[in-house]
């Protein structure tokens, strides 16, 4: 269970006792998808950045199965985020982009290489392993990012509007991938504006209002 309790964040230094800009409290059990809605600027990306370890919270508690995550750097948190864009390194071919998720030093075992090959075939990218991201369509790029997230096997998946701007068929393919992960026990936090995405994936939904989850 991901337990987030009074996780606060200020964009500027604030005095003790002052109400923080953001304060998040929620719980997310394994295998469940929680959707977070909210207008632009409401703090959706801030929430994800705090969970993933890209921002330092002002206070609060964040644990996964009782293990404190706040003192850990992003790569040790067991969390993978898929963003709306900029998910890939533009100068590296597809398979290295995926491979970096499995082995940060790119010393891939034969088994890992085989998993990448099979994964690419599974998401319909067979034969595109040595393409650069600039040579792929938006949907293909997102499939690469999602495949990497899935192959990493993190127990927590954060999705920051990853389906925005994709056509219906591509979105349905990506939804199926996420559903498979949920079935395998991965907890998913989905941030989206799109009702279709939320209805297709979310088990619960909440709304961000004035920096608080309601």
């Amino acid at each position: 269970m991901l337990d987030c309790h009074d996780l606060t964040f200020h964009y500027r230094r604030c005095d003790p006792g002052e109400t923080p800009d953001f304060c998040f409290t929620f719980a997310l059990p394994p295998g469940e998808c929680l959707a977070v809605e909210g207008p632009s600027g409401s703090g959706k990306s801030t929430l994800l950045a705090l969970l993933a370890g890209f921002l330092e919270p002002g206070g609060g508690r964040l644990t996964w199965r009782g293990r404190d995550l706040l003192g850990l750097p992003p790569w040790e948190r067991g969390i993978t985020t898929v963003f709306q864009d900029h998910n890939l390194f533009d100068h590296l071919p597809v398979w290295i982009n995926v491979g970096l998720g499995l082995a940060p030093d790119m010393k891939l075992s034969r088994e890992q290489q085989a998993r990448i090959r099979e994964g690419l075939a599974e998401v319909g990218l067979a034969g595109l392993h040595d393409r650069l991201p600039g040579e792929l369509s938006g949907g293909q790029r997102q499939r690469v990012a999602l495949l990497r997230a899935l192959l990493r096997g993190s127990p927590l998946l954060l999705l920051d509007e990853p389906f925005t701007g994709l056509d219906e068929a591509t979105r349905q393919g990506l939804w199926a991938l996420v559903r498979r992960q949920k079935a395998a026990g991965v907890a998913v936090l989905l941030v989206s504006h799109d009702r279709d995405d939320i209805e297709a994936l979310a088990d619960r939904r909440c709304r961000l209002d004035s920096g608080r989850l309601v």
Partner: peptide, 19 residues
């Protein structure tokens, strides 16, 4: 954004320089 990705996957040190 690239730094964010590299941090997320733990691509650091020599691997970060190399790749």
């Amino acid at each position: 954004p690239e730094q964010r990705l590299a941090d997320q996957f733990g691509v650091r040190g020599r691997a970060r320089v190399r790749w």
